[in-house]
Computed example of a mutant assay.
Amino acid sequence: MASTRTRSSASRISEDEINDLVLKLQALLQESNSGGTARVPAWKILKETCSYIKRLHREVGDLSERLSQLLASADTTGVDADMLRSLLQH
């Protein structure tokens, strides 16, 4: 039973580590948004991070769709087109 307690307490993240991670997220968001350096509540940073990740997923999807359309309309007999198709499938 003691080993279970030790393992679970060792796998927990401390409040200081959480604060450090939130500050890192805030810095990343500020780089992408060119925002100010004011302290923002953790919940707001996490919410903005989720929104940013969703936007990135949409952009990736849009770019993949656009690339697929370009490949479909281009000469698809070349090796480069086959390589791009295989990359898109991953």
Rank of each mutant, 00 (worst) to 15 (best):
E31D: 15
E31T: 13
S32D: 14
N33C: 05
N33G: 03
S34R: 15
S34V: 02
G35M: 02
G36F: 01
G36L: 04
G36P: 10
T37P: 09
T37I: 07
T37Y: 05
T37L: 11
T37D: 13
T37W: 02
T37F: 06
A38C: 03
A38H: 11
A38I: 04
R39E: 15
V40H: 03
V40F: 03
V40E: 15
V40C: 07
P41W: 07
P41K: 13
P41H: 10
W43N: 14
K44T: 13
K44I: 08
I45V: 15
I45Q: 04
L46S: 07
K47I: 00
K47R: 13
K47L: 04
E48S: 09
E48D: 15
T49E: 08
T49G: 02
C50T: 07
C50L: 05
C50F: 02
C50K: 14
S51M: 06
S51E: 10
S51K: 06
S51C: 06
Y52P: 00
Y52D: 01
Y52C: 01
Y52V: 00
I53S: 05
I53P: 02
K54C: 06
K54Q: 12
K54E: 12
K54L: 12
R55K: 14
R55V: 03
L56H: 08
L56W: 08
H57Y: 07
H57F: 01
H57Q: 15
H57G: 04
R58Y: 10
R58D: 13
R58C: 07
E59N: 15
E59M: 12
E59P: 03
E59H: 13
E59V: 08
V60P: 00
D62T: 07
D62Q: 11
L63H: 11
L63E: 14
L63I: 09
S64L: 02
E65N: 10
E65C: 05
E65P: 00
E65T: 08
E65I: 02
R66L: 14
R66G: 07
R66A: 14
R66N: 13
R66V: 06
L67T: 08
L67K: 06
S68H: 08
S68V: 01
S68P: 00
Q69A: 12
Q69C: 08
L70P: 00
L70N: 08
L70C: 13
L71W: 05
L71D: 06
L71A: 01
L71V: 02
L71C: 06
A72R: 14
A72D: 14
A72M: 11
S73Y: 02
S73G: 04
S73R: 04
A74D: 06
A74F: 02
A74E: 07
D75E: 09
D75L: 03
D75V: 04
T76N: 11
T76E: 13
T77I: 03
G78S: 14
V79N: 09
D80E: 12
D80M: 12
A81I: 05
A81P: 00
D82H: 05
D82P: 01
D82L: 07
D82Y: 01
M83G: 03
M83T: 11
L84G: 01
L84T: 04
R85K: 15
R85W: 01
R85H: 05
R85I: 00
R85M: 02
S86D: 09
S86E: 07
L87V: 02
L88R: 08
L88K: 05
